[in-house]
Amino acid sequence: MVKKIGIPSNNVLHANPRFGTNYVDYMQKNYIDGVANAGALPIILPIGDTKLAEDYINTVDALLLAGGQDVSPEYFGEEPHLKLAEIDHGRDDFELALVREAIRQEKPIFGICRGLQVINVALGGTLYQDLPSQYAGMTVKHNQYPTKWYMPTHHLVWQGHSWLDGVVDETALVNSFHHQAVKDLAEGLTLDATSTDGVIEAFSDELRHLYAVQWHPEMLLMAHPETQKLFNAFVAKI
């Protein structure tokens, strides 16, 4: 039977020339491609009431959390930093509820960029709200713009054996589009990789079926088809 992977949507919060005030929920095609090419069925979960989390998780076999806005610092007990970017309480509340429900139902979760951060916060961890101003040891460009999204730019430092063994090459470069990052890793999570300046780039928890990376494998798919192995490895965990 085909495995069903729920992907919580993002949404347009501002009027814009393309949609006007016709606010839409959406998900980038590359996430969908990564899941579909791994032989699973992607199902987009529109942002909704947290009370729907149980029903949504009941309908899928696993959860994939995508990138997007900053996570609000209220969820880890801080006031907003001067460099905090846009937040979306509705999305935060919904995804945090989905994570906790998926863990309760023992269904695997794969977090990408913001998704990694949401998992960490859901479990009691904290974030740097703005790396350039809060992380003193920063020597790597963690937001590679204007370099194209499909072009990897920095290395990983592996912290031990993990589900990524044989999935991501030991000397591989990854891409990087974030200014928030994990500060305090939540209890029970295993650190799998950092950047060369020590920023957390991957963690996992086999007991709770949690897997997360800070980079954007879905963006790399366009020019680096070997990145598909990451999605394949997650689907194999279901």
Rank of each mutant, 00 (worst) to 15 (best):
D70R: 03
K229G: 10
L45S: 03
I112L: 08
Q28V: 12
D93G: 10
A223D: 14
K237L: 10
F110M: 07
Y145V: 13
K51D: 14
V157W: 08
Q134D: 11
A40K: 06
E106N: 14
G137E: 13
W149K: 15
S72T: 12
V24A: 09
L131Q: 02
I5M: 08
M151D: 15
W158C: 08
G67V: 01
C113M: 06
A193G: 04
A236P: 12
D25N: 14
Q214P: 10
S204V: 09
L96D: 07
N22C: 11
P152K: 02
I119T: 01
D33K: 11
I200Q: 04
K29V: 12
K148N: 15
L164D: 00
M222N: 13
G188A: 06
H14S: 14
E74G: 09
S204P: 10
L63I: 13
Y150T: 14
V71A: 04
P146E: 05
G111K: 00
M27H: 07
L82S: 15
K83C: 14
E79Y: 10
A85G: 15
L207C: 11
L96H: 05
T153E: 01
Q159I: 09
L156W: 00
E54Y: 13
E86P: 07
D49S: 12
E54R: 12
L123T: 03
F19K: 08
L221D: 01
A136R: 11
E170Q: 13
Q28L: 12
D165W: 09
E86W: 10
E206H: 11
D192E: 12
S133K: 09
Q105S: 09
G111A: 09
L230G: 06
L189Q: 00
T153M: 05
H179N: 11
P42A: 03
R114S: 04
N11R: 14
V118Q: 02
E79A: 11
E201S: 05
F76Q: 05
A172Q: 07
G48D: 11
V121I: 08
